[in-house]
Computed example of a mutant assay.
Amino acid sequence: MNPGFKFFLAVIVSLEISLTTSLPTNLIIIGVAVVYLLFNHVKIKNLLLTLLLPLVATTTIFATLYWFTPEPNLQNALCLASRIYVYTLTIYCVFIGTTTTEFARCFEQNFHLPSKFAYGILAALNLVPQMKQAIKKVQTAAMMRGVYLSFWSPTLYFKAILIALNSAENLAQAMESHGYVEDEPRTTIVAIPIKISDWIYSGIILLFVNLALLTFN
């Protein structure tokens, strides 16, 4: 499915779940999302970690609505708590098997995202590993002088800002040297079209979600 369609589909489903209280629908979406992730050969370790991380937030919501309220409602507490897993798993389904480059290209080609934002996001993400390596070099150089720069050290952040500014200038020059001109039409190396199947699958999924909300609400 088109990456943009998957993203907007997850947003629409999340909004509908937020506006209703249907525990069976939440459980159905969670179950379908888990099956989809397993079908896409996600690692069991990553899936278990995804299910474990929201547990604190889920437990907090459940405890607040059930244990610390004058009139506890078990179904309402479970419904609101299960929404956390709906949001987490649907977003995981959106990004599974799709790279950041594909998302940027999709939004630029299909949803008219300005190219400067698309390329800017990709450039920032691709610079992250280089920034980490540069910060390690700064810390190593400081340790050789007998100075320890901790994670919260202002000096380290100041040097990191200088490195980022220098990297941004080099990146801008590199893009200009490769022929990038802002607000000018550009050809596409890899086209990401919107297919009829994207509309069909999205419509079917929304239809089943709304039928479940009407049935179990």
Rank of each mutant, 00 (worst) to 15 (best):
116 K>S: 08
59 T>D: 05
152 W>A: 12
158 F>R: 11
1 M>K: 09
124 A>Y: 01
94 V>N: 01
179 G>P: 01
44 I>F: 07
118 A>G: 08
56 V>Y: 11
32 V>T: 12
61 I>W: 04
121 I>A: 11
186 R>V: 08
187 T>W: 09
10 A>G: 03
30 I>F: 02
161 I>G: 01
56 V>L: 15
93 C>F: 02
7 F>V: 11
59 T>C: 09
16 E>N: 05
125 L>E: 06
4 G>A: 07
176 E>W: 05
88 T>M: 10
44 I>L: 14
174 A>Q: 08
59 T>L: 15
127 L>Y: 07
56 V>W: 11
53 L>N: 09
191 A>L: 10
61 I>P: 03
140 T>F: 08
63 A>P: 02
60 T>F: 15
151 F>C: 03
33 A>G: 06
202 S>C: 15
94 V>F: 01
23 L>Q: 02
161 I>H: 01
144 M>A: 12
27 L>I: 13
56 V>R: 07
107 F>Q: 00
36 Y>H: 12
203 G>D: 03
182 E>T: 12
34 V>P: 00
124 A>N: 04
95 F>K: 12
34 V>Q: 04
154 P>D: 09
213 L>I: 14
96 I>F: 05
46 N>G: 05
148 Y>I: 12
16 E>L: 10
58 T>E: 10
12 I>W: 03
145 R>W: 04
69 T>P: 05
33 A>H: 01
9 L>C: 05
150 S>V: 05
28 I>L: 11
52 L>N: 07
58 T>L: 11
210 N>S: 07
82 S>H: 03
202 S>R: 03
36 Y>R: 13
32 V>N: 02
126 N>Q: 11
99 T>H: 05
206 L>V: 05
186 R>C: 05
107 F>M: 02
125 L>T: 08
165 L>A: 08
193 P>D: 09
123 A>N: 11
160 A>Q: 04
48 L>C: 13
26 N>P: 00
177 S>L: 15
4 G>E: 01
195 K>H: 15
136 K>Q: 14
156 L>A: 04
77 A>D: 03
49 L>V: 13
103 F>W: 07
132 K>F: 07
52 L>C: 11
203 G>M: 04
76 N>F: 15
31 G>N: 06
106 C>W: 00
94 V>C: 05
119 Y>A: 00
71 E>Q: 13
139 Q>A: 09
191 A>T: 13
15 L>S: 04
199 W>N: 12
73 N>T: 06
131 M>S: 08
123 A>E: 09
169 E>C: 04
205 I>D: 02
171 L>G: 03
141 A>H: 09
39 F>I: 14
190 V>F: 07
179 G>L: 03
8 F>M: 10
145 R>V: 08
58 T>Y: 06
101 T>K: 08
171 L>H: 05
35 V>S: 09
39 F>H: 12
